[in-house]
Simulated scan of single mutants.
Amino acid sequence: MLRIATVCGVGMGTSLLLKMNVQDVCRQLGVEAEVEHMDVTQAKGARVDVIIASASLAADLGDVGKPVLPIRNFMNKDEIRQQLQQFLTSRASS
């Protein structure tokens, strides 16, 4: 099972919205995933496979030892799908 963190500055509104869209995309892709929403500080120590955050917050996360997928528009499921598919493809080839 894929563990995903969705991240915003405070870990409440935007990350929760992103979480719901990521869950929808995972279902569409047939990917079994556990998605948690959190703030930047929590994400730095989270035990997840990948972090999905706004492009502006991706830089704030720095080197967290796991992939960070930057999203420009949290409502754009096509963008989320594209980022997740690229991640899953690179993970499968590793």
Rank of each mutant, 00 (worst) to 15 (best):
A43P: 04
Q28N: 14
Q86I: 10
A53Y: 12
V50A: 10
Q23N: 02
I51Y: 07
P70Q: 04
M1D: 14
K66Y: 00
D24F: 06
K66A: 07
S90Y: 00
M1Q: 14
E32M: 09
V10I: 15
G65C: 04
N21M: 05
G62N: 00
C26I: 03
K66L: 02
E34L: 13
L61D: 07
A46I: 08
T89Q: 15
G30H: 06
S93N: 10
L88K: 06
D39K: 11
V7D: 12
K77C: 10
L17E: 07
Q86V: 11
V35W: 06
V31M: 11
M20N: 11
L29C: 10
D49W: 07
K77E: 15
A58H: 01
Q82T: 08
L88G: 09
Q42R: 11
T14Q: 05
N21D: 04
V10Q: 12
I52N: 11
R81F: 10
M75E: 13
E34F: 12
V22L: 08
T14I: 01
A55K: 13
Q82V: 01
V48A: 13
A55R: 14
K77G: 10
E32H: 09
K44V: 14
M38V: 07
F87K: 01
L61S: 07
L57N: 14
K44E: 14
G11V: 02
V48D: 08
L2S: 01
A5N: 13
I80G: 06
I52Q: 08
A33G: 09
P67L: 05
D63P: 00
K19A: 06
M75R: 13
E36S: 15
V10H: 13
R81N: 13
Q23Y: 01
D49A: 12
A58W: 05
P67Q: 03
D24M: 12
V50E: 09
K66Q: 03
D39N: 15
F87M: 03
V7N: 14
T89S: 14
L18F: 03
A92R: 15
Q83K: 14
F74A: 07
Q23V: 03
T41Y: 14
D78Q: 01
A55C: 09
D63Y: 02
K19S: 04
S94W: 02
N76D: 15
R3P: 00
S94N: 09
V22M: 02
D63R: 03
M12R: 13
Q82P: 00
M20L: 12
V50T: 06
Q83W: 01
L61K: 09
D39C: 15
I80S: 06
V40S: 13
A46W: 06
S56I: 08
V40Y: 11
Q82N: 09
V50H: 05
M38D: 09
S56Y: 07
S90F: 00
G45I: 05
R91Y: 03
I4N: 12
D39A: 15
V50K: 05
P70C: 05
G30R: 04
S93T: 11
E34K: 12
G45W: 03
S94I: 05
